[in-house]
Every structure is written in structure tokens, then in C-alpha cells.
Design a protein around this nucleic acid. Structure first.
Lengths: 216, 216
DNA sequence: CTTTACTGACCGAGCGCTCATTCACTTTTT
DNA sequence: AAAAAGTGAATGAGCGCTCGGTCAGTAAAG
């Protein structure tokens, strides 16, 4: 199992056409993610994944090195989706004080929409080989980095008091994690308020933090 | 595997002495949690658990219905520990404005100390049968409930503005989750600040939230 | 156009193995 | 000697992954 650890990642096969390989890998990830969300990584069998993708286990292993490889594929595609969505809304948001609220709003909505996926990443990352775990964490960090950018931009324009680097970073992490929190606890929150209520309250929260000089 | 789902929980055995059973179950949980943290639930074998506990697989199964049973045992003992620690510090904390800061501080320190355990719960709860998953979530909620109490008490004494029920609840959840956040991201935060820095900054954060009337 | 040769995507039986669980037996306790 | 507690070899279901093989499609040779 996984002797050839020098390979950074990928393609374990004699098959030639690289476009086909890419397409197939996307198909596999797409089919696998549903199964992982429904049954978890461990209870999902490679045969199920093959079946859901629409071909045989033999073919599956033409495009994929191992079951773990599939999990990484899935995690990566989720992060790509989230990042794309966040980046998009950041561009639309512009800068200035409202921009922060707008970005928070869009991000939280993304979290709401993607909550199954976010949950999956929290729960199954551990099953990845350590090198790939690290990559997943880096992806996570890159998304948080987007919030750092937004905050820094707003501070520059003078719409927020001079927060030091640490305060900005912490605020960014808080945004990131409070978005995730919705996915963890929606089963509970859902009974009391809607995602819009949640966004409104947390935005107040985050803004009130950013509006005072931090002692850190 | 697990046919007899009517049983709410427990003892699957012919052994009579209930005290012994309880003691053995605690021993098992204690041994298992270390292994789960180190290798994860799925990669830990029942034999390893038996060995670590100091007896045979046969005996293990005298005290435990299934591997999942062990996982639940572990989750439950973790929550019990956390709850006890939080309750203790709450009593010492008294009431008034500082009390909140004090409770936050102690709770975050608990999170720091227990971070491996908290991580474990996030990651392995999924492997539990649904009924027990629900119990784990309820445990989580009970801890959050402690913060609700503290906040409500402080509001009553007039040391905080009149927060409505929802705001209090949200603040409580935020405390809870921002504590967990340290365990998820300590690998990153650890490079930049200590747990004390973290506590100081987040306390400012949470207090500034509580000090303004919330629109929710 | 027909025949032959070749390619590579796809298939799935089955290998090798792991691991949770059981139960006939032994040891210890009462 | 009876009951309780403890043992570990044996079981068999289930899994990830491999590999010899098929065959539609394309290219080359006639």
C-alpha cells in the first residue's frame, strides 16, 4: 500500500490520454463525494464508488492510485469550489466598510450551501496520509488569507481603526470558523433562527470587534 | 453486528458484579482514548485496545458490546471531564463582569489541555450509530448551556446591557466554538502567539460583542 | 475496399489479508 | 464444587487492490 511515496501525487497508470484522465478523475470525485457525505469515507467501498461513477473497479484503479487518493481528490475539489465562490464575491464587494459585511454575508451563505462538504473535510481529513493532510490545511489557510486581504484593504482606506497584523489575522480566522460553526450546529440553530438572522448577528459581532483597538 | 438495537446502551455480558463492570469499562475507555487519538478510531483494532487495557479480547467483549460502544464510552468520558472542569471554574468565578473573562480564560485553557480529545470528538462522532451521535451533540449543548447561564447571571446583575435571549445564546456558542478553534488551528496559531495571547485577544473580542446592543 | 495488426479503455473474478466477534476451555474466587 | 472471570484460537465477512483478458475502434498493409 503506497510504497512509492516519492511521487507527489497522482496518476498510477499506463493510460495515455491526459484529458480523459482529468475528466475521469473529476467524475470519480463527483460520485465519491456524495457517497462520502452519506456514509463516510470508511463505510464507502471502492466498488460503490466505481458503481456510482458508472464503471468497474478495474477502471477506477486506472485513474486513481488508492482509495485515499480519491479522498484527497474530493477535499481538493471542495476547497477549490469554496475559494472560487469567495474570490468571486470579494471582487464584487469592492472596498470600504460595507465590503466586510458583504463578504461575510456571502461567505456564510457559501458555508450554508456547502455545509455537508465542510463537515466532511473536518471529519475525514484525518484519514489522509500526512503529506496530503498538510495540503488540505494549506487550502484552508488560503481561504482565511482572503479575509486577511479584505480586512487589510479596509484598514488601509481608513474605514477601520488601525488593527495590528495579529488582530487582523485573528478576525479573519474568526470569520472563517464562525462560518463553519453554522454547519456544525445548524441542526440546533435552525430551530431558533434562519441563516439570515445568524449572518446579521455574527456580522454585528465581528464588526464590533474590529471597531475597537485590540490589546494583542 | 449490532442487531440488538433496542438496548439503549450497555452491558452485553453474563458477568454479574456491576461495580467491576463499571471499573472495567472505565479502564477500557482510558486505554482506548489514547489509541484513538494516536491512530484514529478505524485504524485502532480491538486487540490493541484489549492489550492496552491489560487483558484479552475475550474479556474485552465481556464488558463491551462492540467497538462502537467503546467509542461512545470515550466520547462520553471526554465530555464529562470537560463539563466538570468548566463547572468547577464557574463556581469559583462568582458573578459580575470579570466572571465572564475568568470563565472564558479557564475554558480556553481546558480546550488547550484537552485539544486532542476535542479533535477526536469532531472527527470520530460520525462513526457512532445515530442515536449515540445525538447524545454526543446533547453533551456538547449542555456545555454551551453553562455559558448561557454565566451570561444570563451577569446580565441580571446589570454588568452587561440587556442582551436578548438569542444574543446570549449566540455569544455562548461563540465562546464554545472559539475555544475549539484553538485546537483546530493551534499548529498555525502556535507559531504566532501563545495560548495566553489568544485568550486575551478573544476575550476582548467576546466582551466587545457583549457590550453593545444586538440587533437580533 | 478488405484484411490484418495494433492500441488502450474497460472489465470483474479473485487474491491476500485484516479484523470484529465468538465460544469452548482454563483459572480464580466464593 | 459451583459460579464468575478471564482466555485466545478459530471464524468468516468484508475489504482494497491486481491482473489476465475482451473488444471497439483506428491505422497499416494488401
Amino acid at each position: 500500500m503506497m510504497q512509492d511515496l516519492n511521487r507527489t501525487n497522482d496518476i498510477p497508470t499506463q493510460i495515455k490520454n491526459p484529458e480523459l484522465v482529468e475528466r475521469r478523475r473529476r467524475q470519480i470525485a463527483q460520485a465519491a463525494v456524495k457517497l462520502f457525505i452519506k456514509n463516510g469515507f470508511h463505510k464507502t467501498t471502492t466498488r460503490q464508488i466505481a458503481q456510482a461513477t458508472g464503471f468497474s473497479i478495474g477502471s477506477l484503479y486506472e485513474y486513481v492510485a488508492s482509495k485515499e487518493d480519491i479522498l484527497y481528490l474530493v477535499c481538493d475539489s471542495i476547497h477549490t469550489d469554496v475559494e472560487r465562490l469567495v474570490t468571486d464575491t470579494m471582487e464584487k464587494a469592492g472596498s470600504g466598510r460595507d465590503a466586510l459585511a458583504k463578504v461575510i454575508r456571502e461567505y456564510f451563505l457559501v458555508c450554508d450551501r456547502m455545509s455537508d462538504f465542510i463537515l466532511l473535510i473536518y471529519q475525514e481529513t484525518r484519514s489522509l496520509p500526512p503529506q496530503w493532510q498538510k495540503r488540505v490545511l494549506e487550502n484552508e489557510l488560503r481561504i482565511t488569507g482572503l479575509f486577511v486581504e479584505v480586512l487589510a484593504r479596509i484598514v488601509e482606506t481608513g474605514d477601520l481603526p488601525n488593527l495590528n497584523e495579529h488582530s487582523i489575522e485573528l478576525a479573519a480566522h474568526n470569520i472563517s470558523v464562525l462560518g463553519h460553526m453554522w454547519t456544525f450546529r445548524r441542526w440546533f440553530f435552525g430551530r431558533h433562527y434562519t441563516i439570515d438572522d445568524y449572518i446579521r448577528m455574527q456580522t454585528d459581532y465581528i464588526l464590533s470587534m474590529c471597531s475597537r483597538k485590540n490589546s494583542g
